[in-house]
Design a protein around this nucleic acid. Structure first.
Length: 115
DNA sequence: GTGATGACACAAT
DNA sequence: AATTGTGCCATCA
């Protein structure tokens, strides 16, 4: 599939997140890059949070940090749920809640970039 | 418009 | 290996 020409950054981030297949993951920076603003990884994290509070049905748990791990930042409930969801779909997590990106990272199809 | 805020990323200790 | 510092940028108040 191809990246739609969505008007806003947030819409592109949400759309992209929805493309991540079950059992695969993407990093905040990766989504930001694909959404057109390579250095907006931080904003992506904020949007993941927002998407949940709004009630959007997205595989938010498949978005993790650059070291292949779950970001905590003081939270407890969400990280635990994220761990459960990822494991339930086959993503192997270490004791430190990190996975091997070389194995589980999602890479968009070739025609993803085509017009 | 302006400034504060992060589920970040990476470099430098 | 584990912290700390610095840059970053879409949102939101």
């Amino acid at each position: 599939m191809k990246l739609p020409d969505l008007d806003s950054f947030s819409d592109r981030v949400y759309w992209l997140t929805d493309q991540i297949p079950e059992g695969r993951v993407a990093t905040y920076g990766q989504i930001a890059f694909l959404a057109g603003t390579p250095r907006a990884a931080r904003a992506v994290g904020a949007l993941m949070k927002t998407s949940r509070s709004i009630g959007l049905d997205l595989p938010w748990h498949r978005v993790i940090n650059a070291s292949g791990g779950i970001s905590y930042k003081g939270e407890v409930e969400r990280p635990r749920l994220q761990r459960t969801l990822l494991k339930s779909e086959g993503v192997l997590l270490s004791a430190k809640d990190t996975c091997d990106l070389s194995i589980f990272r999602w890479e968009p199809d070739h025609d993803f970039w085509s017009i």
